[in-house]
Structure formats: structure tokens, C-alpha cells
Amino acid sequence: MSFLPFAVAAWLFAVGLYGIVTSRHLIHLVVCLSVVQSSTYVLLLAIGYRTGASAPIFVEIPPGAPAVDPVVQALTLTDVVVAATVSALLLAMAVQVHKKAGTFDPDELDTLQG
């Protein structure tokens, strides 16, 4: 049971990859990529968690009281926001591909063979 958080992270990574590989729509594909990314957040935060400890915000608890790992949260926090802008970049690419090729379906894009 205590392995569940890690298993969920692995599942999200794999299922996101599955979505990308089988995607028939570039926007769907970009969203699947963000699912893969959410796997890394779940993994990082699950690693830093400590049973019974509070959040690393020492307003109502005294300094030195048991708190969960603040580092993984710092790593994740910025990434969440930055990732959204990267998704925007990918969506903009997808929109432009659609404009040129008239389709969102990767199967119908064939300018780059061989």
C-alpha cells in the first residue's frame, strides 16, 4: 500500500506516453504530454512526504517542528507554472501546423519522410 504513490507516478508516465503514441490529434497529444509531466510532480512530492509532518510553513508551528521536505516543493512549484507556458508554445505550434497542413492528425502529416 505504501508503494501506491510511486506506482501512480509510474502509471501516469506510461499512460501519458501511450496517449502520445496513439494520438490522432495534435492538441490531444500536447495535453497527454502534460499528463506525463504531472507524473514527475507526483513522484517528487511523494518522495518528500513525511507521515505526521506539517507543511514547511512555520506560521502556526515553531521552527524545528517536523515538516515535509521543502526542496521537492520548490522544484515542483516553479515547474508547474513554467510547464504551462511550454504547453502554450506547443499548442501554438499545433495551431500553425493545422493552418499549413489543414489537419491536426499526425498520420496525415507527411512532409518529413526519409
Binding site: A9, F13, L17, I20, L26, L29, V30, L33, V36, Q37, S39, T40, L43, L44, D79, V86, L89, L90, M93, A94, Q96, V97, K100, A101, L109, T111, L112
Partner: peptide, 23 residues
């Protein structure tokens, strides 16, 4: 069209590479 498609392929594969590194 080729340029856009190329950069999309680039972005998707390299992002997955980055997620592997982060994991």
C-alpha cells in the same frame, strides 16, 4: 509546414527526455 512539424517533433521528444531526466 516542414519547419513547424519538425519543431513539434523536436519539442515533444525533447520534453519527454526532460521528464525522464527529472524522474
Amino acid at each position: 509546414e516542414g519547419s513547424l512539424q519538425g519543431s513539434l517533433n523536436f519539442a515533444v521528444t525533447n520534453s519527454i527526455g526532460a521528464f525522464l531526466i527529472l524522474s
